[in-house]
């Protein structure tokens, strides 16, 4: 009975991890902007990888393999946000702007001649 419950729980975790990985990959392909793509890709690293590895740990039981899976999980949990942060910072530093900032900038450009005309008579 206990083994059955563990099996069902690990199946749920594996299926949920597969779902999150697929959704993150879809977002990585479909999102319009670099920063939104970063958001989608970080989803696969945290939820997808975490759920799949925990599901595998439940399948492995109290063995050395479970410890190795735990080490992989801890390492991914520490390094994935680090590399994502470095990537976003490098992109911001090199001049990539979010889509909303670019839209606001173009709106400001469209408004600029009108405000000049309003300012000129006064």
């Amino acid at each position: 009975m206990m083994n059955m419950a563990l099996d069902v729980l690990s199946w749920i975790l594996l299926l949920g991890g597969g779902f999150f990985v697929f959704v993150g990959g879809l977002g990585l392909f479909r999102m319009p902007d670099f920063y939104t793509r970063v958001h989608a890709a970080s989803l696969t690293d945290t939820m997808g990888a975490g759920m799949i590895l925990i599901g595998l740990m439940l399948q492995a039981g109290w063995t050395l393999n479970s410890g190795k899976l735990m080490m992989i999980l801890v390492f991914i949990f520490f390094t994935s946000p680090t590399s994502t942060h470095a990537l976003a910072k490098a992109a911001l530093f090199a001049g990539a702007r979010p889509l909303i900032a670019r839209r606001e900038k173009s709106k400001e450009k469209n408004k600029l001649p009108d405000s000049d005309k309003e300012d000129a008579p006064s």
Binding site: G24, G25, L28, F34, R37, A41, L87, A90, A91
Partner: peptide, 9 residues
């Protein structure tokens, strides 16, 4: 950076 992100994924 898109390419680096994809390769990292």
């Amino acid at each position: 950076f898109d390419r680096i992100l994809a390769v990292n994924t």
